[in-house]
Design a protein around this nucleic acid. Sequence first.
DNA 1: ATAATAGTTGACTGTTTAGTAAACTTTGCT
DNA 2: AGCAAAGTTTACTAAACAGTCAACTATTAT
Lengths: 204, 204
Amino acid sequence: MGRVSEAKVKLMDAVLELIWTGSYGSTTIDQICERAGVKKGSFYYFFNSKSELAVEALGSSWQSMQAEVDRMFSATIPPLDRLQKYCDFSYKFQCDMKAKYGRVLGCPQFSLGSEVCTQDDTLQKKIQSILDYKRKYIESAIRDGIASGDVPACDPSTKAQMVMAYYEGMLMQARIKNDVGLLSKMATGVFSLLGVKDGALATV
Amino acid sequence: MGRVSEAKVKLMDAVLELIWTGSYGSTTIDQICERAGVKKGSFYYFFNSKSELAVEALGSSWQSMQAEVDRMFSATIPPLDRLQKYCDFSYKFQCDMKAKYGRVLGCPQFSLGSEVCTQDDTLQKKIQSILDYKRKYIESAIRDGIASGDVPACDPSTKAQMVMAYYEGMLMQARIKNDVGLLSKMATGVFSLLGVKDGALATV
DNA sequence: ATAATAGTTGACTGTTTAGTAAACTTTGCT
DNA sequence: AGCAAAGTTTACTAAACAGTCAACTATTAT
C-alpha cells in the first residue's frame, strides 16, 4: 500500500548521467535532484548520501548491461570472436554517447574508480567488483582460446589483466581526447597482446 | 625588490599532492592553503582560481619530470631498452608513492584528465599537451626500433597510441586496486603490442 | 633613511551546499 | 468511508565554500 514512486529510478538515472558527463566530485545532490525532477526531501527519503545512491545506481546499471555482455561472451561463440564483438560493441557505444552528449564518455567504472578510490571505500569496493566481473569475461574467453588452440599458451588471469588495461586505457584516452576514432581498431591491440595474428577470426 | 616568497611553490606542491592523493573536485582552495601553510589572501594574490593553479602546477611538475624522461629515452640507448627503462621507472615510482602515501597513485595526468575533460577546458588542454609529449617519446623509440630492425614494421604513431593506452591503463588499474604488483611485468605487454619477443633486449 | 615594491594577513561578504523536520498528499486495504 | 502505509513538499538550519579588501610587513634600490 501507500503511493508508488519512480523517484528512486529517476535519481539513479540522473546521478549516472551527471557523473559520466562530468565527475563524481562536481555533481551535487541539488543537481541530481533537479535533473531527476525530484525534491531533496525525497532524495533523503530513499538514500542517505550521494555515495549510497551512486553505489545502487552503478549496481543496477551494471545489471542491465550484463545481459548484453553475456550474449557477446556466449560460450557458443568462438573465443576470439567474443573479444572482437566486445570491442566493436564498445566502439559503437562510445559513438552513440558522442552523438548524444557531444562527448566520448569512456568507461564509467574506470573514470569513477580512479576519482574516488582514495576517498570512498564502499563506492570503491562496488566499482572493484564490477571491474572484476568484466575481467572474468575476458579471462574466460582467453582460456577458451587457449583450449581451442587460437591463443598461444599463457596465464589467462595475467593476460586478461593486460587486455583489460589496454581496453580501459583506450577508452580513457578516447574520453580525454574526445576522439572516438582511436577506438575503431581497438581489437588489433587486444590480439597483439594475445600473440594472435589479426584477421585469424572464424567469423565476425 | 619587495619581499620574496615561497608561497607560490608551496601552493603548487600542495595542490598536486591533494589532487593526486584525492581528486581535483574534492580539493578546496581552503584545503590547498592549509596544506601549503599559506593564507587565502596570498592564494588570490598569485592565482585567480584553482584551475589556474593546477595548470601552472602541472606544467612545472612535468618540466622537472621531463629531464629524467629525456635521460631514459636518450638516443644513445637501444630503442627497446628505453621502453624497458621507462616501465621499470614507473614501477619504482609507484612503489615509492605507495610507501609514502600508502596508496598507488597512478598517472596524475590521466586521472585528472579523465576527471576534468568535460568541465575545464584550459586544464584539459594542458593535460592533453603533456600527454602528447609523453606519447612522442614512445613513438620515437618505436620508430628507432623499426629502423634498427628490433620492431616489426608498423605505423609508429598508431602503435605509440596503443602502447600508451596499455601503459596508462595499467597505472589506472594499479591505482584503483591499490596494487603495485600489477606493474612489475608491465614491459611484457608493451613488447607484445610491438610484436617483439620478451627478452630480446640488448642490455638492461 | 626612506620610499617604492612585493608579499602577507585577517576579517569580511554572499553563495552554495548537505542535511532535517513537520505538514501534506496519494494509494491501497478493510 | 476511513485508516494506515508510502511518498512528497516546503521551508528551514548550519556549515563549507569562493572570493574581496584594506591594513600591515618585509625587502631592497637609491
